[in-house]
Amino acid sequence: MGESGRHRVGKRMSDPNFSPVKAYLKAQWREMRRKQEKLAMEDPGAIHDVRVASRRMRALLTEQGRWFPSGRVERAAELLRTIGRGLGRARELDVCLELLKTVLDVHDAREKDSAGAARPKSAGSSLYTLRSIEEMRATESSAVQRTARLLAGDRFARIFSELSETRGSHAPYGSKHASRRMGRRYESMIETYHAWLAHPSEETLHHLRIAFKKLRYTCEIYRKCALGDPGQPAPERDNASTEAHRLLEHFIDELKAAQDRLGEWHDVVVLRRCLVQIVEDAPERERPGCHALLLRLDKASAKRLKAFQSYARRFFGKTKTARTRAMLDELFKAPPKKNHEETPAADGSDHTTFCEGT
């Protein structure tokens, strides 16, 4: 590496604004590596956690990619997409199996069946559905195992260690970038919501679910990378940054609440699609019971959708929207500077806001 290259590395490594970016990247990388053994055992929780960590890393590379060389960002993003695709179908089927137990009481039906107790047709169809989805899930084991090996391999470690070794060619982000990015994501989500209201369908509601997810991850990144950890006192931290962190944390909680409601609806939709596929290949004796299960799923889907609609009317209301826009716009703005007549700080130091130099 030449002298100029060493200068760029040293400059970035010493840049305090890069430290939280690197810490966030490492936290997600470690989360994925920590779950690798359970992933190899095909633990549903580990599959979910690895997918979430991979999405957060992709969001970080999207939002903070200028810190890194573009070629390495692209390689890392492609690897993360491979991980997500490798686990996506397995995760869907794991959720379907869980819903069969919680929504359709398949677990109880299976116990009665093993005990030889009398059971209604719908219970028998529930067991048929359960076994069919278990067979679908078994076909995804190889994809999960490939992903587990990928996480344990040198390639995964090398690609992400390289991101910390060389600086990109662009200047660091300023605080305006954070406010602008969150604002754009928020406006895009509002547009997607109104598109769904105008043309309600599973597809448009799915787009809204993704919009919530993207905005939430973006806000989480800037909460960590631009506002820092309020629990760790620092000279540059002041009451303004602590309040900004609190406001953004509350907004993230609201996004998560909406995302959870949409996720619950989406889970039932995925299970229904699987059941429709199963019905097409089911023996004639199983079809009446399977159709009864479809009706129960339709009721569950309608109930969960209603819960989201009720929440969305408040979340996207005019007053709430105006307040959120104002909050995002003011979040990274520095408070007015004190004039010369004001009393200086007791320690004689200057008060700098959290957004200066970011």
Rank of each mutant, 00 (worst) to 15 (best):
K299M: 08
V50D: 01
T62M: 13
P336I: 07
F354G: 08
N239R: 15
G5Q: 11
A211H: 12
A152E: 10
K256N: 03
G228I: 05
T343S: 10
R314L: 15
F18C: 05
G263C: 02
K35G: 02
G228N: 02
H177V: 14
L79H: 11
E31M: 11
S201C: 10
G65S: 07
M57T: 05
C355H: 05
I278N: 06
G10I: 09
K318P: 08
V21C: 03
W67P: 02
G45W: 00
S349N: 10
A117V: 01
D108I: 00
H266F: 12
P344I: 11
D267I: 03
T343D: 08
A312C: 04
S169W: 06
G10V: 07
G168P: 00
G228V: 06
E165G: 02
T242K: 11
K320Q: 15
L255P: 01
K26Y: 03
R181Q: 12
A27G: 04
L205A: 12
G2L: 09
M41H: 07
H199E: 14
C219T: 13
L79I: 04
T218W: 03
D267A: 14
D154C: 01
S70C: 03
K213P: 00
L294M: 14
E162A: 10
T321D: 11
V21S: 02
R261I: 00
I190A: 07
R304A: 14
S19R: 11
F316H: 07
L39R: 04
G183Q: 09
P344Q: 05
R149T: 09
D347V: 13
D350L: 14
I221M: 03
L328R: 04
T358E: 08
R51E: 09
E191R: 14
T352K: 13
R8Q: 09
S126M: 05
S301T: 10
V269P: 00
R181W: 01
A300C: 05
N17Q: 13
T82Q: 10
H194E: 13
M41Y: 00
E342C: 11
K38P: 00
V144N: 04
D260Y: 05
A117C: 03
E74H: 13
D298Y: 07
L104N: 04
R285E: 14
A157Y: 02
R272M: 10
R110P: 01
A334D: 10
R223D: 00
D154I: 08
L227D: 04
L328A: 08
F315S: 06
P344H: 07
F212W: 08
T129D: 01
R296F: 01
G2M: 06
K101Q: 12
H207K: 13
S125N: 02
C219Y: 03
D267Q: 08
P172G: 06
K214H: 11
R296W: 01
E111N: 05
Y311F: 15
H207R: 14
I252V: 14
E63Q: 15
L25H: 04
R51T: 08
L87V: 06
K337C: 01
V52N: 00
L331F: 05
W265N: 04
L208M: 12
R85D: 14
S125C: 01
L39F: 03
S161M: 05
R180V: 04
A234H: 11
A77N: 09
L295E: 15
Y193A: 07
R131L: 11
E191V: 08
